[in-house]
Amino acid sequence: MGKRTLWIILLVVLGLVGGYAYYHNSFITNEEEIAGRWAEIENNLQRRADLIPNLVATVQGYAGHEEKVFTEIAAARSQLLGAQGVTDLSEASSALDNALGRLLMVVEAYPELKADARFAELQDELAGTENRLSIARLRYNEAVRTYNTRIRRLPGNLVAGIMGLETKDYFQSTAAAREVPKVEFK
């Protein structure tokens, strides 16, 4: 009897240790994935911030007196570059989205500007970056959702509790950000 019980205890312990290791490692993998996706978002935010001065310069060549929009963009851009953390960044990013939307509305009034090949390409770069950003955001949020769900569900939450893991923030796209006028093609 003694020997048998010992074996059973051993098996149970092995099962527990194995299960713990499995969850521990998979959480680490999830965290790394989230970090990678977050880096992708940051890259795109940075790229967009880099593109903006060029775009603004081109617009200024045609519409120099629309100063209000330019100051708005400059402010939103520096807010973005100074932002730290997920929530801060997503807010700053929305502000910039709005400012850019207004810039593109201004552009509508200048047909020569719209016909400028350089401007069209800058707009493509910007639209491409926005698109990459929204895809990066989707992928990031998906990874966060998987992770948050896993660390809160049984039995993963036991392991997560031992590891001291907490749920991560989503990268929000606010309602205002969604209203950004799409670059229209004729």
């Binding site: 069209a120 390409e121 493509d124 770069e125 639209a127 491409g128």
Partner: peptide, 8 residues
């Protein structure tokens, strides 16, 4: 093939 080139 940058976005600008693709757009072009």
């Amino acid at each position: 093939i940058t976005d600008g080139r693709a757009g072009r």
